[in-house]
């Protein structure tokens, strides 16, 4: 423990979170009541509740916090925000932390929510619109061909239903529609990223 001691319970990581994580400046306002932990529908499945994450941030547990998969499980139900007696924007902080961990490459590998998020982002950015069919298939086949076929078969009833209801167009598989100025979008996103990086002091 001794090597770790000087790092612990210093405000360094808290400051980092305040500066670089969306709504991170709220973390210090938590009074550890635990109502967020109890309010979360995913609570029992998490390793760390928001309240515990906040305490870990204060305790300087950088690697454990950023490597935690807890933030990735937030479904944005907003129960915690509604009940938090200190009005912390907990949902936003959790997403901010996830984003930050991802940016630093510290987020847990193979975490399904994170994988989905990446898939969704790439899918969306590519043509400026979400291609639901490709996104779905990408998700089905992310663990290999056999697993993909199995999942696809299991979901076929739903797929057919959606097709009949004109919610899915099989033609989307081939190219799919796009926005007019994809290049422009890419430029916007690049600029936004640059601004964010500058503001939050990311170097990479």
């Amino acid at each position: 423990m001794s090597a770790q001691v000087p790092e612990r319970y210093r405000n360094d990581f808290l400051r980092e979170v305040e500066e670089r994580v969306e709504e991170g400046r709220w973390v210090k306002m938590c009074m550890q009541c635990g109502v967020c932990a109890g309010s979360c529908p995913f609570g029992p499945h998490w390793e760390h509740s928001p309240q515990k994450i906040f305490m870990m941030i204060r305790a300087g547990k950088r690697a454990e916090v950023l490597g935690s998969d807890s933030m990735w499980m937030c479904t944005s139900c907003y129960n915690c925000i509604v009940r938090c007696p200190r009005k912390l924007p907990i949902t936003h902080i959790m997403h901010g932390l996830a984003n930050y961990a991802h940016r630093l490459g510290l987020a847990p590998k193979g975490q399904p929510t994170r994988e989905f998020a990446r898939l969704f982002w790439d899918n969306c950015i590519k043509q400026g619109r979400a291609n639901e069919l490709k996104l779905t298939l990408g998700l089905y086949f992310k663990d290999g061909l056999a697993a993909g076929i199995k999942t696809a078969l299991a979901m076929k009833g739903i797929g057919l239903g959606m097709f009949k209801a004109k919610r899915i167009n099989p033609m989307e598989l081939f190219g799919g529609h796009r926005i007019k100025d994809v290049k422009g979008l890419h430029a916007i996103i690049a600029k936004a990223r640059e601004i964010e990086d500058r503001r939050k002091g990311y170097t990479s």
Partner: peptide, 9 residues
């Protein structure tokens, strides 16, 4: 809260 022994300087 974190239920562990710790130290601080």
């Amino acid at each position: 809260i974190l239920d562990e022994d710790a130290a601080i300087d």
